[in-house]
């Protein structure tokens, strides 16, 4: 039972997929199946699903999560009514998502439920703090597609990353793209004097500021455009960019690499722990990658164990 023991050390863990069908749901179900519940209160939710109960891309139903008796969960009113388990209501929030208010309940039997919790990172944080009244030891957050923000250390302390053939059908490319995300997650914490300048939007940026300051704090997103400008200034001296956390970096891999290669540095204010990387070698279009090769190559590249939880029943 790899990495599940590790999860228990944290109060909040998010499961993040790098692409649709990357195996995030399997990963979550895998964890849920193995968590010890007798002395441990677990709550699970998902960051909102933008009001769709059907997957807009493939028109298939959103995957349901299997809960065990005793687990707490947060979902929207609509999906609560469609649940396929017996559960006891604990709270109905007064915050509304696109498909109703967020309901918190405890499963009284094993069964399936669609998770569609709070719709923003800040609403999610509020929901998590409302759980204090119930006495929850661990919150698992199912991060929806393109919602890397749930993995922000501002929301959850640790994360599990799931990646797979759906993200890229070429092992080399998949490994490289995944390794990039892992590298961003691992960016060092900033420890230096207060940065000389803060940039909150691109329009704040003057060539002069960049030229004169060695350390720049980026208050919003670190985009390609911004990174490009700073990169061009590297010839005039060292530059370090400080971002809030890795989820704020939206720069492309190539540009990031070029920046680092020329001696640029990026550090973060808050850091999240990466507990495990799970892979799904099967893509929805039928492509199947060699699981062992994929796990081996990726593991070697990122220096962490990589699990194919579907193939290998750990």
């Amino acid at each position: 039972m790899p990495f599940v023991g590790e999860i228990l050390k944290y109060r909040s863990v998010s499961i993040v997929g790098l692409a649709k069908n990357a195996g995030k749901t399997e990963c979550l179900n895998y964890i849920l199946k193995r968590l010890p519940l007798d002395y441990f209160n677990v709550a699970v939710t998902s960051i909102g699903i933008d009001g769709e109960s059907l997957d807009q891309v493939t028109s298939t139903a959103k995957p349901e999560i299997t809960l065990r008796e005793g687990m707490f969960f947060g979902t929207s009113e609509k999906h609560y009514r469609q649940r396929k388990l017996l559960s006891e209501l604990f709270d109905v929030s007064d915050e509304t998502t696109a498909i109703g208010r967020v309901v918190t309940a405890k499963a009284l039997s094993e069964g399936k439920v669609l998770l569609s919790g709070p719709s923003s990172a800040s609403a999610l944080k509020r929901w998590m703090s409302s759980l204090d009244r119930i006495g929850i030891d661990l919150v698992l957050v199912d991060g929806a597609l393109s919602r890397l923000s749930t993995a922000s250390p501002a929301v959850s302390e640790a994360m599990v990353l799931s990646t797979g053939a759906a993200f890229s059908a070429n092992i080399k490319d998949l490994v490289s793209k995944t390794a990039y995300v892992v590298e961003l997650i691992g960016l060092p914490l900033y420890c230096g004097p207060e940065p000389e300048a803060r940039i909150s939007s691109f329009s704040d940026l003057s060539g002069e500021t960049i030229r004169e300051c060695q350390v720049l704090e980026v208050e919003g997103a670190l985009t390609d455009r911004l990174l490009q400008v700073v990169k061009n200034e590297l010839q005039n001296g060292e530059k370090e960019l400080v971002v809030s956390d890795f989820t704020r970096i939206f720069a492309s891999q190539d540009l990031y690499r070029a920046f680092i290669k020329r001696g640029g540095k990026i550090s973060v204010r808050m850091k999240s722990r990466l507990l495990a990387v799970c892979v799904n070698p099967v893509a929805p279009n039928g492509i199947v990658l060699d699981s062992d090769v994929l796990c081996g190559t990726l593991s070697e590249k990122i220096g962490l164990r990589v699990y194919d939880i579907v193939k290998n029943v750990y």
């Binding site: 017996l86 559960s87 006891e88 209501l89 604990f90 405890k106 009284l108």
Partner: peptide, 9 residues
Amino acid sequence: DGLRIGTFY
């Protein structure tokens, strides 16, 4: 059940 707790099913 006369439990007088605020949950319900």
